[in-house]
Structures are given as structure tokens and as C-alpha cells.
Design a protein around this nucleic acid. Structure first.
Ligand SMILES: [Mn+2]
Ligand SMILES: [Mn+2]
Ligand SMILES: [Mn+2]
Ligand SMILES: [Mn+2]
Lengths: 223, 223
DNA sequence: TTAAAATTTTAGATTTGTCTAAAAATATTT
DNA sequence: AAATATTTTTAGACAAATCTAAAATTTTAA
């Protein structure tokens, strides 16, 4: 029942890929984890043996309920630790990912429950991603990718699709943060870039690639 | 330069044994880590190759300066995490050891420095053991084993030589804690047990075995 | 609808950390 | 000083996680 750190990294990656892809491919896992396709196949056999996923040779694979449950527990730990690092130890939000990658593998339910409680049972992590509770439930976010966000509607930046330093420093340069209000003002078909207004004042241009990694939600409340 | 968790566990164990034994034996490490003597020999070769210890076949071994430095860094992490678990997450002092055994292997200097700072740069962990600073220095304790403590002198319980649940629950039963004042009032040669006075009031009998695991320091300050 | 390209799996190694059983060295007793 | 016991090391094996290179399968393109 307890998993190794390597198994947990695969489980988490497959979970996140299947949210987007449905069925997951060997190569997508390999490139996400920066490992070889052969290693992925090796691990798939182990995870299948442990009854965490549905897998037929050459046909792709996806986590079953047991596997999803395991993934949510790892994601819960990862996001709670990130919250701890930023809120309590005053890390910057682009400095926490690597350490959380390690901390998520610490085995102790008591630890994670006490941590959750100490942090005040936070609902979202510093990147705006929802934190599953002990049973695996997460708040729904109805977040939309910025590329699909309607024009001239004010939303709030609530999540970033990548934690690469390159991306985070670009965001920082453009003065975009989690919680910034944002509205798409113009679309340029040529390069699919967009002009957005940040916090109702600053106007900046955002590349298609960057937009693909920004998630926003509509502001339902006053303003 | 970074060590694996297994290497770190050996380094820490050898350090602690050589404080008492001077030269360390294969079997003492094996029984402390609950592993086979053969595994210890295997690891000794690796640690020698990494120039962390002085080792000649069949002759015993001990950490050199480089090895001691590594050990102190691991001990620093272990004791800071224990302090976090007890002071911040409200674990009991006899519940923290297993989790700290895992947390001590997280690789991030930034993390441990921020944690130290957040905890207020504590000098002692919840078991009364000194916490090395970032350079490896620890406060000297001049603690004495209770079996060697002079009669009728008031001291303070500052460390326990074991973290076994059995021992900690026995201490709890006798209402002895870290920080309790203690004085040895009578020695019984027959079973080498002693009567001690706790916090200047309660008189209890302590077995030779228990006394061997209790460390006290003289109270130099008023009272 | 074959041929070429891409993807995936297998075969065979390697590293780390562990084990048991046997051999070697050291320590203790007659 | 032998014989015996203990400790330590070596030899050989195994599981986990990884790799490269080759084979198998599926997909795409001619
Ligand atoms: Mn991880
Ligand atoms: Mn996050
Ligand atoms: Mn440990
Ligand atoms: Mn301690």
C-alpha cells in the first residue's frame, strides 16, 4: 500500500496528463518526467500489477479509481507543502516546486493532517491550484484557459499551467500574478498573441504560448 | 556532494556511535540500523571511497572531519524538524522520531535555513539535544548521566538516551519530562535503583536501566 | 496498400542497496 | 599454543529504477 517515490512521481504525472489527454501515451509521460520511454514501460508493468491503472500494450493507459485516489493524495501533499513554504517560510511562489517534489513523498498521514490544520485547511495553493481534502475532494474551479476567455470580460488569474522558472520570470516581468485581474482586449490572428489589461490599468501583449499556460476564472462578484 | 538517504543514515549512526565508542565496529552499526553486517561493510567501502571515513579492514572505522561535517548537517535537519513537529504541529515528543527520520533527508539548504529562522533558531530539540548551527557548532551541554549524578544536588532533566515508546511512556507515568528538576536522594545497591525527587516534591523510584538513559545537567542559575 | 516513420516494447546492462552463506581474520578459552 | 568462538569480509544473488540498442507494433504517407 505505501508507494515508492518513483512510483508516486509516475502516478501523479499520469493523473495530470489524463485530465487533458484522456488516454495517456508512453512518450508523454517520458517527456514530462524527463526519462526514457523504456523506463515508462517498465513502470507501467509495475503499476498494472499493483492494480492502479488500465493498460494494454501499445494501446495507451489511464489510472483507475484506485490510481486516481493515490494521485490525489500525492497532489494534496504537494500543494499543502507548497502552501507551507510560501505562507509560513516565505518562499517565493516560483521557488517552491523542487522542494515540494521531495516533501510530497514523506509518508505520514498524521503529518499531513496536522499540516493541513496548521495552515487553516487552505483551499488553493500558491499557484492557484485546488488542494484536495483528505478524502480526495477538491473545490471546483471553473477556470478557463486564457486563450478561450471572451473579450472585454474581467477575470482573475487563478492558475498557471507550468511552474518553469522561465515562465514565472516572464510573468513577473509582465507584472502578472495569481489574483491579478485580467481582461483580453485584442486578438492578433497573425501570431495568435493577445493584448490584455492587467489590474484594469496596465496593457501588455501576451504570446500564444504564454496564454496557453494561463488559467483565469470569471469574477462573479462585484467590480 | 549530495548523499543518498541510505548514506546519510549510516553517516549519522556512525557519528553517534563514535561519540561513545571512539572507534566504531561493524556490528554496532548493523544492530543500530537493524541491517546485516555485510550491508554495513558494503556501505563502508562507498563511504571510504567518498573520503568520509578512516577505515581499515577488520580494524574498525570512524568519520574524518568531512564525515563529521556531513553528520552534523543531517543531525541539524533532524532536530530542527523534530522541533517543528512538536512546537508548531503539536506532535508529542515521542511521536516525532520516525517522521524526522524521513524529513532529515530533504535536500534544500534554503528550506532548512528558513525553517531554522521560522522556529526562532532554537538551541535544543524536544528531547533536550543540542541543535548544530549551519556551520556545525552546537551549544555544549555538560550533561551527565543520571547514574553519575551526585546525591542531593538539584539538576534538570535535559535529554533522554532513547526515544522508545516504552521508555517515554514510563517517564510520562513517573511524571518526568525534559525540563523537570531532579535530585538523587538515595541509592539502593541491591538492584542499583535510585530514589529521585522530581520538581522538588514528588519522590519516585527509578530503575538502573531507566537511569542509564536519563541525562541531567546541574542547575547553575538561581533556585 | 505498401513503404517509411514514429511509437512502444523487449533484451540486456548498470547502479544502489540489500540479503544469505561461506570464507577469512581476530579474539577468547581452554 | 591450540582449539573454539566471534567478528568481519567476500561471494553471489536479488529487487528497484534506470539506461541504450534492437525488435515489434502502430501510424502516416507515398
Ligand atoms: Mn516528487
Ligand atoms: Mn502548485
Ligand atoms: Mn533517516
Ligand atoms: Mn531528538
Amino acid at each position: 500500500m505505501p508507494f515508492t517515490a518513483a512510483e508516486e512521481n509516475y502516478i501523479k504525472t499520469i493523473f495530470q496528463l489524463q485530465l487533458v489527454e484522456g488516454m495517456v501515451s508512453t512518450n508523454s509521460v517520458a517527456s514530462t518526467l524527463e526519462t526514457s520511454a523504456a523506463s515508462v514501460t517498465d513502470m507501467l508493468k509495475k503499476l498494472k500489477l499493483k492494480k492502479l491503472l488500465v493498460y494494454e500494450k501499445y494501446k495507451g493507459f489511464k489510472l483507475n479509481n484506485e490510481g486516481k485516489k493515490a494521485a490525489l493524495s500525492i497532489i494534496r501533499k504537494h500543494r499543502l507543502w507548497e502552501t507551507f513554504l510560501v505562507n509560513i517560510l516565505h518562499f517565493k511562489w516560483d521557488e517552491v516546486h523542487e522542494v515540494a517534489e521531495q516533501l510530497e513523498h514523506i509518508q505520514s498521514n498524521q503529518l499531513i493532517d496536522h499540516l493541513d490544520n496548521f495552515l487553516g485547511n487552505p483551499q488553493f495553493d500558491p499557484h492557484g491550484d485546488p488542494i484536495p481534502d483528505a478524502t480526495g475532494k477538491m473545490p471546483v474551479m471553473t477556470q478557463i484557459n486564457l486563450t478561450k476567455f471572451p473579450l472585454h470580460i474581467v477575470g482573475e488569474v487563478c492558475s498557471v499551467g507550468s511552474q518553469s522558472s522561465d515562465m514565472l520570470s516572464l510573468l513577473s516581468h509582465k507584472q502578472i500574478e495569481i489574483g491579478s485581474t485580467i481582461s483580453v482586449e485584442q486578438f492578433f490572428a497573425f501570431d495568435e498573441s493577445i493584448d490584455v489589461k492587467i489590474n484594469n490599468t496596465l496593457m501588455v501583449n501576451i504570446s500564444a504560448k504564454l496564454a496557453q499556460h494561463l488559467y483565469v476564472k470569471k469574477l462573479n462578484y462585484a467590480s
